[in-house]
Design a protein around this nucleic acid. Sequence first.
RNA 1: GCAGGGAUAGCCAAGCUGGCCAACGGCGCGGGACUUAAGAUCCUGUCCUGAAGAGGUUCGGGGGUUCGAAUCCCUCUCCCUGCACCA
Length: 974
Amino acid sequence: MAEVEARWAAKWADAGLHEADPEPGRPKFFGTYPYSYMNAFAHVGHAYTMSRVDFRARYERLHGKNALFPMGFHVTGTPIVAAAHRVAKEDPVQLRILRESGIPEEELGKFADPHHWIAYFPDKWREDITRFGMMIDWRRSFITTDKNPYYDRFIKWQFLRLKEKGYVRKGRHPVIWDPVQKAVIGDHDRAEGEGVAPQEGVLLKFPIEGRKGHHLIAATLRPETVFGQTNLWVDPSVDYVELAMEVKSPEGDTKKEHWIASRECAEKLRLQDLGVKTEVQSVSGKDLVGLVVTAPGAERKIPVLPASFMKTDKWTGIVTSVPSDAPLDFVALQDLKKDPAPLVACGADPALLETVAPIEIIDTEELGTLPAKAVVEKLKIQSQKDDERLKQATEEVYQAAFYKGRMLPHCGPVAGRPVSEAKEAVKEWLLAQGSAHLMWEPESLVVSRHGHQAVVKVVSDQWFLAYGDKEWKATTHEAFDRMEILPEVARKQFHIVVDWLRDWACTREAGLGTRLPWDEDWLIESLSDSTVYMAYYTVSHHLERLKPPADDLSPEFWDHIMLGKGDAEAVATKAVPVDEVKRMRAEFDYWYPLDFRNSGKDLLQNHLTFAVFNHCALFPEEKWMQGIAVNGWVTVDGEKMSKSKGNFITLRDAMERFGVSETRFAVASAGEGLDDANFEIDVAKSATRRLVSWLDNMMATWDRVAKAEDGEERGADRWFASVLNRTLQEVDGHMSRAEYRTALKVAYHDLGRDWSWYLKRTGDDPLPSLARQHVSAQTRLLAVFVPHLAEEVWHHIDGTGSVLDAGFPAADPTRIDPAAERQETYFEGVLDDIRNILKIIGKEPTKVYLYTAPEWKRRADGAIAAALEALPPGERVNPGTIIKALVSDPELKAHTKDVPKHVNLALKQGAGFLNQHRRVAGVDETAALKESQDFLTREFNAEVAVFSADDPDKVDPAGRAQGAVPGRPAVYVE
RNA sequence: GCAGGGAUAGCCAAGCUGGCCAACGGCGCGGGACUUAAGAUCCUGUCCUGAAGAGGUUCGGGGGUUCGAAUCCCUCUCCCUGCACCA
């Protein structure tokens, strides 16, 4: 088989079979796979997803379309650069990853250079994918970033135009930041805290009594609880700092203030651009204890008390205390009241404590109005050091308060409102008063690969794609409504994503990429430079051929190619003359819009949605994307693929181990729809003998029937003709809905089984014309899945052209014959009955007698069925009425005695009766069985006699014939 | 928590516009044929009972609608995925 595959792969390459050029007037199909990131080899997951496009492209081509499937390679972003950097530093983990993917030891060093990655992996991908038989037009391939000046110009054009339309905007944006390296820490650069995002807290300012303009600051995640503040906590053993600030007021002007917070906090305030001017002095925590401050929101005087539970590197190092709703505050306060020594040690008056007590602010229903107290008592928390249980308690209080709680009447502007609303409202209210600011902190600990604890920096000149824009969203919704989405359930998901998508930070400081045309300090981020590049495929091969200076590709050039704006003459250059400009414009216009894009479901909420947004923004409606298909992850034998489990299979491994066609077969069988697909090793392994025997059988069958003439048509022939033609219709439907696994099941497994049954039924004597149709049709169906083998068979039976251009096997609807199929189903039912009897009596038969039902029962059943069908819904049959009607039928007069019994038997089956009656409609049971007598004799190795119960000469040693009913002949074996 | 999707026989997995469903198909397992043998292949069986084609109990738990429910409704339990600035 490997020989067949290699031979055809070479021939296809020579003939340029997979290259597609515009053919005006011929319908086209343009399908794409989102180019993969080039930091590793292709694995079976990639193979699964790209095979969806390959199958579809082949299917469309069989249907006569001019099908284009191009593929590029993505290198934008930081991972390659970061990985190369790690190689340079001889990071053992990184080196092991490369070694394990099969890179020879002596070449490892080359990977210290990012450029080696972007040269090496695209080559390997192309090799693997070509061998895998993907129908790709490689002339159009390219890589991203400024390493490809043409693509670079294209992306610049895209961003320039997006900006003009107001879709690229500048704004502030929090990022996870390494304060020592002074760099953003992406997920892949983290030693700890993968997936952790910045979290917004509300920074509260507490004016110190008697010191105008001086504030202690504390942060809270629950601004709605400000009404319950009773005190502040500071750590007496810590040195805080006093900062001179220039703070933005809500009105927009700046105000000079002094803030006191932890030393670590000061750095964060700087990074977050909150207005730090200078550090005035260091302030001992001890000196802060005993001060009186005004609690913002509550506008109440509260004391500053000592505690030791807070960490100076979290938020401000000062904590506002709400003992009613914060278990930790409650416990700390309890402890301090029990033993005021720490307070006294700071020289403060223990009398301060007298006025401090929890204040009810929220009715949580299940936990009452003092939820912290309730939970602390419930969990029996004794100490403020009991971290584990305090965390649990806090979580429990929050759940109860946020989702079920209501603010009590004295809570100012939010009195009576649900906590879930109050939270946001209080935040806005405090901000508007100027008594609060926003501050960010990582949700949980993040440590960079350099070993530094991350903080949050607010980038102030960050560029965004305005996916939050209402009108843009509306247009995008419209596009999704019109698109073909497979599977259909994904459409709802897309609409949801469009709704919740916010502005997207689209620029980065580091990595590879295209520079923002108007602000060259910034690089366009990888999910943003890949949204409309499918359009670039339509001309990339021309640019590679002409090799113009990159400057020829002005924004106006792209306007003309992509949008048809302006004159070809105006954008033509020496290297790109007018006729070439026209050619490219025409080619874009021919292939666009994109008909189909297939990706894994992980890209649903970012890349795929972005792509539709951007198409809507840049292109006129008729060039919007037409179709998207989404597929699930790939598991191997039901387990998630992972290097550590040792079940990670690259595409080249798979082809090496199982073979090309086998891999394609297993990948097609792996799954469909949004559920995870399962690549089964056994399926891949056993595919060899399956496919070899398929190939041999097709060839042999063809040779046998190629020139033979048809004899008389038999029931089995009509049956198989019907099944075959119905199958062709079904497969067409499944393919069009991207149900490739089902398509393969029906086209290969089911049809193959039916064909075997047909051969068996006819004693290996198929009708030659039908056999020819079968071989020809199944070969063309399988050209989608195992093209090399199908090509081999096709060449054998036809010899001209590729199977890809042989046309999708059309069903002949006139050959679909439900009666013939009913007859076969009937016959199989009889077979089952006989087998069942033999199984129960447990002996080998020597003679089998079959008696079909007498005519009068058939007539009676017709009347019963009619009566049942005429029955108004909800009413029960009255057997008496039917019996009366039947006995008055002159045709049934002779059987008056047997009618009641028959009717009762029939009605006892309930709904089953009607089904069975319909199943044998139009079947001549006696003829059907007689025709199959030879078959039955072979099958049971016994003499088989068929009689009608009406036959006066029947042989009926056991008197069974009377038991025959229509559809269920009586059986007697001896 | 929010959003979306699930729960089917030993496992995987169809069905889910209500009746043709004891429930497609695959794997696994039993029996048989072939073979010196193993493997492969083919046939056959695989919820329980049954010496005549039958009956009984099943499609996460509970309740309901209906002549009839794996399929519709309610409810409970459990599971998966996403909640982003990362390719």
